[in-house]
Amino acid sequence: GNRHPYRPGGLQTPGNTLERRDKMKAYIKAEFFRIIKRPGTWKLLLFLFILTTPMLTWFPAMSLFKAAGTRSAMPPSAASMFFGIAPFWVLAFTKSCITDEYKFHTFKNTLVMGLSRKKVYVSKLITSAALTFGTFLTILLVYLAIGHLFCGISGNSLFFKTYAGLLGQMASSIPLLMAAVCVSGIFACLFNHFIPSMICYLSFLVLPYPLLQFIYYLTGTQWIRALYYLPLITPFHKVLLNQPVEIEGLFGVIQTQSDNFYIVITPEIFMYSLILGFIYISISIPIGLYIFKRKDIC
Results as ranks from 00 to 15, higher is better:
Tyr229Ile: 02
Phe251Ser: 13
Ile174Phe: 06
Ala188Asn: 04
Met198Asp: 03
Gly220Ser: 02
Ser184Gln: 11
Ile224Val: 11
Gly220Asp: 02
Leu227Lys: 04
Pro244Glu: 09
Phe187Ile: 08
Phe194Leu: 09
Phe261Trp: 15
Phe204Lys: 03
Gly185Lys: 00
Gln213Ile: 10
Ser157Met: 09
Pro208Phe: 01
Ile254Ser: 13
Gln257Gly: 05
Ile195Gln: 14
Phe261Leu: 15
Ala164Gly: 04
Pro208Asp: 05
Tyr272Asn: 07
Met170Asn: 01
Ile199Ala: 15
Asn260Val: 15
Gln243Glu: 13
Pro244Ala: 10
Cys189Pro: 05
Asn260Lys: 15
Ser282Trp: 08
Ile195Gly: 08
Leu218Thr: 12
Phe191Leu: 14
Phe191Tyr: 15
Leu227Asn: 05
Thr234His: 00
Leu207Thr: 01
Leu190Lys: 12
Ile224Asn: 00
Ile254Glu: 13
Pro267Asp: 15
Phe191Cys: 14
Ala188Lys: 03
Ser184Arg: 07
Cys182Asp: 06
Asp259Lys: 15
Tyr229Arg: 04
Gln243Leu: 14
Gln255Met: 12
Leu190Asn: 09
Ile265Lys: 12
Gln243Tyr: 13
Ser173Asp: 00
Asn242Arg: 11
Leu211Asp: 11
Tyr290Ser: 11
Gly288His: 06
Ser197Ile: 06
Gly168Val: 01
Gly277Arg: 03
Ile283Cys: 14
Ile279Glu: 02
Pro210Tyr: 03
Ser157His: 10
Leu205Pro: 04
Leu190Val: 12
Gly252Ala: 11
Gly220Ala: 02
His237Pro: 00
